[in-house]
Write a protein that binds this DNA or RNA. Structure first.
Lengths: 124, 124
DNA sequence: CTGTATCCTCCAAGATACTG
DNA sequence: CAGTATCTTGGAGGATACAG
């Protein structure tokens, strides 16, 4: 557990890097991309594969999402310099290590979805 | 692991309820509120306490966040009908069960923050 | 003190078109 | 096929004022 030297949990400062990181990995598309990549063999997934696997994502969003993931060292990017070019993505070790925490959250959501729906219904 | 009967992971449908739920709990303020409430005794936290504990959140956002959490059955809300009125919040059992998965994610972020910062720096 | 309603701003994200 | 650039917009979220 990290607590900063001032005595305040630094997670609660708006400009805390860890909080920003959390915002990013909590992102819908980010977590989804990590899951898709985790389910396939590293370096075998093409841009268009990802698009197909992520219904509703736009061309642009996927591009941006992958860029951020690559910039953070979570995914690898390999360009085959063919014509037309194809690009393959895969998780790094770091990226793979993120899949577990995300899975825990997904499982919680799946496990409690019904209960929550029911509760919403009651208080409609 | 839930996979729907059609053979498609239903998490990937844009209108999948579980995906919507994930979007909500991945929300910055939601996860922060759960953490704050988890760290205190149930039913002892006032609106203004939460505001102070969550730097940067606006009046409106806190109100909305708590409403959603209450609607989903994750937090309780008790109104002391005094003057001026005071309202106390606490996690339900369901809410408490969410803290663990969120903690796992926070810990991942804290553990790997340095590594990711370093990677970003390299590719500045 | 807690909460709601109104207005307003601004940016995330879609659509589209273009390049290598 | 993969990616970038431009333009546009819906809606999330802040500020403010007011009510109970």
């Amino acid at each position: 557990m990290v607590t900063d030297p001032t005595g305040r949990g630094d997670l609660f400062s708006p400009d805390c890097p860890t909080r920003q990181l959390l915002d990013r990995i909590g992102d819908k598309w980010t977590s989804m991309a990590v899951k898709v990549l985790a389910e396939r063999h590293p370096g075998t997934v093409r841009f268009s594969d990802l698009r197909r696997a992520m219904p509703g994502i736009s061309h642009k969003m996927l591009s941006q999402t992958l860029q951020k993931l690559a910039a953070d060292g979570l995914v690898t990017r390999r360009v085959d310099d063919t014509l037309p070019p194809s690009v393959h993505y895969g998780l790094t070790d770091l990226g793979r290590s993120l899949e577990e925490p995300l899975a825990v959250l997904r499982e919680w959501a799946e496990a409690h979805m019904a209960e929550i729906s029911a509760h919403r219904g009651v208080h409609a």
